[in-house]
């Protein structure tokens, strides 16, 4: 009984947050709705027993990526719709009717394609009974430390590359303007 309510609550939060990101005109509001959607996805992970993933989603996405987004919105002139410095008439930053229509059409086409692929899967997997949720932390830890140890090490190299690359790109230039 509670499982269904938790599922509905987080599903509503996810999809509602995602649609609100689409509709909101202010970029800061879009970031907050994205945060709400991440909350919902964490709830969806929890419902099917992926408790470690729900916590990771909260730590990495809700704690890290959203703050990165907020910082970068602040560092690039806030969410105000500044006109381009050439004064040319430009499509406003958050999109107007034309772009929304283009988005609707494109997502409709994408929907058709994806539905075609998913159609044969949905039919005969619908009635699978849910098995009991087992704690996943030990199982993930064991598998991560034995079978996927190579992926574990390579992801540290990936993190190193991302750290150094992004640091080099976004470092305030000292030599040039000194």
């Amino acid at each position: 009984m509670f499982a269904n309510t938790l599922f509905l609550l987080s599903a509503a939060l996810t999809v509602g947050g995602a649609f609100a990101v689409l509709w909101s005109k202010n970029l800061m509001h879009a970031c907050i709705y994205l945060l709400a959607s991440f909350f919902g996805v964490a709830g969806l992970y929890a419902v099917i027993g992926a408790d470690f993933l729900a916590a990771t989603q909260m730590v990495v996405y809700a704690g890290g990526v959203v703050i990165l987004m907020l910082f970068s919105v602040m560092l690039t002139g806030g969410s105000s719709e500044k006109i381009n410095r050439f004064g040319l008439e430009k499509i406003p930053a958050m999109g107007n009717k034309k772009t929304l229509f283009a988005a609707g059409f494109a997502s409709f086409v994408a929907a058709l394609i994806v539905l075609k692929i998913l159609a044969q899967f949905i039919k005969h997997y619908d009635a699978t009974p849910m098995t009991a949720n087992l704690p996943t932390v030990e199982r993930i830890g064991v598998v991560l430390a034995t079978d996927h140890i190579l992926a574990f090490e390579i992801s540290s190299v990936l993190l190193l590359g991302a750290l150094i690359g992004a640091a080099v790109i976004s470092r305030p230039r000292r030599e040039k303007n000194d």
Partner: peptide, 27 residues
């Protein structure tokens, strides 16, 4: 809402890389 020094972004960047590292390390 004047924009700020990039230093804030570099700090947030290093934070998220170490955050993801600790998330991978926990299991």
């Amino acid at each position: 809402w004047a924009n700020f020094n990039v230093r804030f972004y570099v700090i947030a960047l290093i934070f998220i890389i170490f955050d993801v590292e600790s998330a991978l390390m926990f299991p």
